[in-house]
Write a protein that binds this DNA or RNA. Structure first.
Lengths: 372, 372
DNA sequence: GCAGCCGTGGCAATCGGTTGCCATACGTTG
DNA sequence: CAACGTATGGCAACCGATTGCCACGGCTGC
């Protein structure tokens, strides 16, 4: 009863004090009724709950956060929200967070390490933990962030920070296997950004798989991991043809297919192309892209779940990264090796002229980088 | 000077009290030095700033929010983060928010009005305002939300809530014009969800443009605004052919093109197809899609900017919605009307069988609804 | 019958900033 | 020199919830 505060000025949200007055107990009891079930007599608790319902009381997250530090928010930091690789990661993270009563704070760092540091600095005081996806920051900057708050890193490996990654090794192995089964004895890998941890991983995996499966492999690049990058790669490939290509990622593969099409080279008749990620759009490009499906949504979910576990006090799982499985999605961009001399191409006088209208330059989306 | 508090236990973030001690002033002065420039003597302010830098002080947003209500956060509520229409909207919103020092809170409502209400209820106490994009809630629920916090609605019109929308009328007019110029005298509109405000708007615009430009129009549907929906629409279209199709959105158009391709109908030789939105992927589907480019990013930016203006006290701009301009992007899916009898198609025994391997079912992404 | 324990609820300090009000010191003006 | 205005900084009361500690009443056990 001891509440001397004036009644809430109509318009602002009800507080525990209003509920306390309404139910005839002290504010502290109201607080406990919600946050510490069992600590309050059940009939009292029921009365309080009823009063709260009547008033439409909702606990104010800011007020709760102040003494406890529990903001019920986590941040997902990524280099570019509009990169399709992130779509499912975001969704997975969002689902996992919401399911646990947490709210997801999105920070787009626009591919800049500086902006990323700034975004983190701004987010840190408001969140309980961070998921860093394809961070553009240096290792030491990531470790620094991990000192301030629990952190989980996606698609990059640290020994002392928990991380979840795609099983690129198995993915590339499956891709090479698939091409091998189709009769291809020589494969070209189109590399992504040099600075990308994932690219190194993927190339190594391709090489190892090639060794083991007795398929020759070579590497072209690096290229920007975008449709534009794939277009650029076309020239190089035409100068040194190959019947099978594995690209660093889908965007690169899609760009390459467009480039080849313009040059009159048919996919998959003349060249088989395999992508990586299975991003949105890889099924409706033409031909539909055979690709290694990265566990995008699972990556988001797993990262958030590990983070939440840390927040609950479970010691972080460092040392070995959590590796999530991939699967090969076979579509229309791969086919048995053609009997035609591969050298025969590149001679074509170009693609059949496009239909009417301006040919689609598509430059609008040609430059979306992929995560490293 | 009057600070009796014990020094901060190393490990937690520095507070104004630490800065106050360090710079030899009262905490209130520190506070004012940051939040009220001019109120504090400039040399004092400088001294305080230096101390703050030295300590790495950052104002705690929760603590600030408690007395003031200023959380520096706004929520962007959307029906499905993985819908490509949102990519640029999100990015535009993110940029505008960040530029103003605000943080964006993303809420995905999974296409459910109930989840949307829940998400809003959870977000409201934490944010200063909301942007509702393609809300699935009833008008009254939206108005209810707008009573609790400043709200801006995207792609839906209210007379009493500020909103920003795409200029569908002009967009559809441009599409019909374009087809008319190519010689098409009859156009089929593939409708989106009936409940969609945008669909009603787009269909009406097509009809009006048709009337004015003397092109016959008819409407097929409704279909789900997804690739799957477009596939479904194919059957209907084959039964009642037309040389030109305008789809509710790109996903529907892309699905249709895939369906037509499988049925052996060539785009654009036999049918011209125009989409709407210019989403990610509409340039690399085959043929590259001619489409009305919605001002996606501008929509996000404008919505946030209007919201921020409201937060600064500018009276909300209600009454007439803010209409953002579109532009027609001509690519490869439209061509002059073919001289072949349109009735000739539908006879084909189906598409040439796809190349090797399983034909891409692509069911993974066939069901992404678009905003209504 | 009294000490001691348990269940329950209240008091009050606290989290970190914000801000209305007041005190002081200085400069100005008549 | 007195009266006054202004610039500046401090005091203390908030914002709303949490939580350690204590008080009170009822119960048990010896």
């Amino acid at each position: 009863m001891g509440d001397q505060r004036r009644p809430r000025p109509a318009g602002s949200a009800p507080t525990i004090y209003d509920v306390a007055r309404e139910s005839g107990v002290a504010a502290s009891t109201v607080s406990r009724a919600f946050s510490r079930p069992g600590r309050v007599n059940s009939v009292t608790a029921e009365r309080i709950r009823a009063a709260a319902d009547r008033l439409g009381y909702r606990t104010n997250p800011m007020a709760r956060a102040l003494p406890t530090g529990r903001t019920a928010m986590i941040a997902l930091v990524l280099s570019d929200v509009t990169n399709p690789v992130y779509f499912e990661i975001i969704r997975g993270a969002e689902r996992a967070a919401t399911a646990a009563g947490y709210t997801l704070l999105l920070a787009d760092t626009q591919e800049s390490g500086r902006l990323e540091r700034e975004a983190i600095e701004r987010a840190v005081p408001a969140v309980e933990g961070l998921v860093l996806s394809s961070s553009r920051m240096s290792d030491s900057a990531v470790r620094m962030a991990a000192k301030q708050r629990p952190v989980v890193v996606v698609n990059r490996v640290f020994s002392d920070v928990p991380c979840v990654v795609t099983d690129s090794a198995r993915g590339m192995r499956r891709a090479v296997e698939h091409l091998g089964e189709l009769g291809h004895r020589s494969i070209t890998y189109l590399a992504g950004p040099e600075a990308s941890w994932a690219d190194g991983m993927r190339w190594r995996s391709v090489r190892e798989a090639g060794l083991e499966l007795e398929v020759r492999v070579r590497r072209l690049g690096p290229y920007r991991p975008t449709v534009g990058g794939g277009l650029a790669a076309t020239t190089d490939l035409l100068q040194a043809p190959s019947t099978a290509v594995v690209a660093y990622n889908d965007l690169l593969a899609i760009g390459l297919m467009r480039g080849l099409d313009r040059a009159g080279v048919r996919v998959p008749r003349d060249v088989s192309v395999v992508g990586f990620d299975n991003v949105f759009g890889s099924d409706f490009c033409t031909p539909a892209l055979t690709t290694v499906a990265a566990p995008l949504r699972a990556l988001g979910t797993a990262a958030v779940e590990q983070l939440l576990a840390q927040l609950r006090g479970v010691p972080p799982r460092t040392g070995k990264p959590t590796v999530l499985p991939v699967r090969l999605v076979v579509r229309d961009s791969t086919a048995p090796r053609s009997r035609r001399k591969t050298l025969a191409w590149g001679t074509g006088s170009g693609a059949a002229p496009g239909p009417a209208g301006a040919s689609g330059t598509g430059s609008e989306v040609a430059d979306r980088p992929a995560p490293g």
